[in-house]
Design a protein around this nucleic acid. Structure first.
Lengths: 301, 301
DNA sequence: GGCTTAGTTTGAGTAAAACTAAATCGCTGA
DNA sequence: TCAGCGATTTAGTTTTACTCAAACTAAGCC
């Protein structure tokens, strides 16, 4: 196909000027100066070799030639705008795919997601649990929630929570055969180990916690290991022992009394949960809505 | 009206790429490099915050989003092209207004115009006789034919004829009571004066001619004056006397024997007839056709 | 008539967009 | 495993678009 079109921007400028019969109004519509429109129209006339306006004094009148093409141009631009409108609607209606760190998904996000659904019934959120930050575009994700240090090149990043750990256990352990009165009492209990961040120095483990709590005589290497924090915490809820639980992930279980904190010595992780989406997608309505809701839920509550 | 449109050139690039599902082909259609199209499409995706293509290997596939808007974009650009097409047709069909120096119109152009009409039945030429070079645009003229020196700023200029003058009279004067055998015989005859260029040193008058012809004893100030060369020549044809006639204007009358040249001492004017049109309009089909015909008629014949 | 006002035009300078060339990447098919 | 095609990246260049300031051009008004 070979559509012989003049430069498009001057064409749009002319269409607006012709519709308003005023450069000033056209300029306002296009968010440029009147001088710009004047230049554009003149350039188009030169390109076509035809006068499009008859300038009588300060007034603009369309020439026959201008008259002949103006309606068609208007329709053309309307079609383009319509197509873009359709694009945006399509995007708004389609599902929002979010790739989420598994523990965060199950312990924090999923329980609250129903609230989001009520607030935004038009947005169809789909959560995929995955550990790695994959190439969002390639995998078809719109956004992600990740635990990390916040340096994600090319992404629009918002911190949700700074994560920290504290001992947690089932409530009945407190007053069991070996009551948990002080940290040293841990020696009589099973320590549950979360290995999910084993290779990351930013995640405190039992030896680090015991040292921070100035506890001696407790063998920090005992006990079962888990590869996910939520599994370790689930084991603790089941009464299997004491876990260094993640405060934000455990918030609901603590509030519900399924877990308690025997000794409130909290160690910060150097990590936080972040919401990220490709920079260019930051303003898409459904993404902005989801991000705003996440931030309100995490910071407000 | 506020049509929220993305940048138009990227939009066109995407439309072409989407239609061909190939950047290379789109680039060929748009007469740019594939790199340019790639940039444009990427820029549009960034602007919209949406992927329009799924790049699988070297192949392009439209995303749902791209699919959603592509047809509308195609229609939009088609409309624009249609409007431009209409504009050009309108221009080709409309009359061709030419402002012509009056003597040239009546003596040379009008007698030949019928031939142009036969060659270009689709072009409706309208001749307006006027002496001054008015503002063509403002007066609605497409082109002009003027006598002058060829310096017309901003105009596309083509010389038709260099004008010159020579004595002319009705044939029966040659062998009248006082035969015209040599220039000195003019003393017995009426001299007709063309005042149309009286103030222009470039137009020879009777004193200049007599001097050039080395004639003495003829009173060059006698005789009636005319304000237009064609009027003076008409008087000569009517046998009223001898005129310094314009060769190109008199060509037809000389050929038909209505006028004869008693003494072939031709003096050049420093002037010529020129065809002019605004630079930007030089390539409009009907103007080019008329210009080419004029040049063929004036130079070829 | 001279002033003011609203609007367009001009010209110069600047910012932004578009484009190219050349190197590179990634798949595909011999 | 390599050649080749097509898309992409990077960096630099050209072209286009825009703004600002000043100059014009009626038209309205005392």
């Amino acid at each position: 196909m070979t559509r012989d079109l003049p430069p498009l921007n001057p064409l749009r400028a002319f269409e607006a000027a012709g519709r308003h019969l005023s450069l000033t109004k056209a300029a306002a519509e296009l968010h440029v100066t009147a001088a710009a429109v004047s230049h554009q129209v003149r350039g188009l006339e030169d390109y076509l070799g035809l006068k499009l306006f008859r300038r009588v004094g300060n007034a603009l009148l369309l020439t026959d030639a201008g008259q002949a093409c103006l309606p068609g141009l208007g329709e053309g631009f309307d079609r383009l705008a319509g197509a873009i409108e359709r694009l945006k609607e399509h995007d708004a209606r389609g599902p929002l795919h979010v790739s989420v760190a598994p523990a965060f998904a199950s312990k924090w996000l999923v329980p609250r997601l129903e609230r989001f659904g009520r607030a935004h019934p038009d947005i169809d959120v789909r959560i995929s649990a995955s550990l790695e930050l994959v190439d969002l575009d390639r995998e078809g994700f719109d956004a992600a929630i990740r635990l990390g240090r916040g340096s994600y090149a090319g992404f629009d990043v918002h911190e949700l929570f700074a994560e920290s750990v504290v001992p947690m256990c089932a409530p009945n352990l407190i007053d069991s055969l070996h009551p948990l009165r002080e940290p040293a009492d841990l020696q009589h209990h099973v320590l549950l180990h979360d290995d999910s961040l084993r290779f990351d120095r930013a995640a405190p483990d039992w030896p680090m916690w015991l040292k921070a709590a100035d506890v001696k005589g407790v063998n920090a290497s005992r006990g079962p290991h888990f590869s996910h924090p939520d599994h370790a915490m689930q084991a603790a809820m089941d009464g299997a022992g004491i876990v260094l639980g993640w405060r934000t992930l455990g918030a609901d279980d603590l509030a519900a009394g399924r877990l308690v904190i025997p000794f409130d010595v909290t160690l910060p992780m150097q990590l936080a949960f972040f919401f990220l989406c490709p920079h260019v997608a930051a303003d898409r309505p459904k993404i902005a809505a989801f991000r705003n809701w996440l931030l309100a839920e995490s910071h407000g509550a």
